[in-house]
Design a protein around this nucleic acid. Sequence first.
RNA 1: GGCCCCAUCGUCUAGUGGACUAGGACACGAGGUUUUCAGCCUUGUAACCUGGGUUCGAAUCCCAGUGGGGUCACCA
Length: 476
Amino acid sequence: MAGKKVRTRMAPSPTGEYHIGHIRTLLYNWAFAKKIKGDFILRIEDTDRERYVEGATERILEVIKSYGFDWDEGPEIGGPYEPYFQSKRLEIYQKYSQELIDKGAAYHCFCSEDRLAKMREEQKTRGIVSTKYDRFCLKLTKDEVVKNLENKLPYVIRMKVPDNKVVSFNDIISDKISVSSNEIDDQVLIKSDGFPTYHFAVVVDDHLMKITHIMRGNDWIPSTPKHVLLYQSFGWELPYFAHIPNLKEMGAEKKLSKRYGAVGAKEFLDEGYLPAAVLNYLMFLGWSPDTEKEIYTLEEFVKDFSIEKIHKTDLVSFDRKKLLWMNGQYIQKLTDENFAEVSLKFAPEGIDKKFLIKIASLVKSRLKTLSELKDLIEFFVKKPKVDKKILGESWEKHLRSAKSIIEKEDSWSLEDLNDNLMKEIEEKGFKTGKFFMDLRIAITGKKETPPINDSIIILGKDEVIERLNSVLSIKP
RNA sequence: GGCCCCAUCGUCUAGUGGACUAGGACACGAGGUUUUCAGCCUUGUAACCUGGGUUCGAAUCCCAGUGGGGUCACCA
């Protein structure tokens, strides 16, 4: 296989929304292809008609793009190994399953779901927990099979797993993995509806599409021997396998759970996470570089990534707090213009891009996600409801003093406002902290806000006086 | 339960037989930045699953136990 152009792939199933864990798998596959100047292929594995979700394919492609990924071959752009939808490759699977039948490596099975269920039941009562097909139809003569076929009996095609054989493969991450073929069931290859199962389609397509490296979650390790057997039956060269650690929820649950927050790749974006931040966090879930560098752009990741550095471990926790921190770091690093651009859709009504640029430096460091923006800055465009109970004892004195100073501000510069307010505080003997807290609450309605003097300057004199009057119950 | 995989701070991890009094980051605690919150700076707490080997020497190699996970469909 040395010397061949590296080709990796991601093969989503349109059976639901695209998960954040899928993005991580895609990230590794994509980055590896980019690094080696290979190809990254996208293939849609839509062979399950029962679980098919309308529109899921489009949404998956959309979210992949919104994270900044592209593909060299696949839906929308095609490529030399079209089609890239498995549902459109049925004849191909038909042809290759026939080849296996001809070789004696697969056979027709006419067993009904009913019989299969009873068979499993019976095996279980005998104490067999890991049930397997009993090869009832393997005993059928050629004539019987032909007759059944002529009579249009429904059937599936099963692989004939050889007995007493050690099946093994080398995993780049987990080293050599071996298992006895006696452990492997006669897996269904073609379902009775004529569609292939995952196990069959993935092997045929990966071979036909010349995929060289298969990187996927390590929950696929137990079924890889089936695939290896298939490669061997066909006489095809094995690709490299790399099974990466799966993600789990930090806390009680094992899988990522909605109970703890977003799980869908799009959800994170909707909640105001920056794609670059999510990606940066994802990179380190099962991989780390030689250095202690932790902030990585996609380009830097492509440069430093290697499959060998993926951790040989079982599960990694998805730590939402660290993601939050990472996202905050990325928001802070945004230029004011970029910040305005990405945060516009999270801003309250009445706030435009120009205004966001103006306040960017006041709010960037205060946000962990963009969705927190609305609460933080709404007071700029909406008069606050001030709960007088949260004001300090001397609030009236404070506000009257503040008002008198602000009314006299002609330059309307931050420096002057600051100086004059401080002078007043000193003269009147106020407590600085309490003074500003009352002012803050009167202007914004909240105890936690952007810097208050900056906010006053931005709000403008009339608006500020109006708000002070309102709290002091002074009618204009 | 069978089979397979895994095992360093709470979490992500560094570590590939001596440089380890086990390093970094998040989280958490303390202090500072003499107006909030956030940010930033300084600082602290905190880990090699257990038991046997191998070796002059083990977090690092081997074995066993324990623990965790995955998987056993006409789903992927």
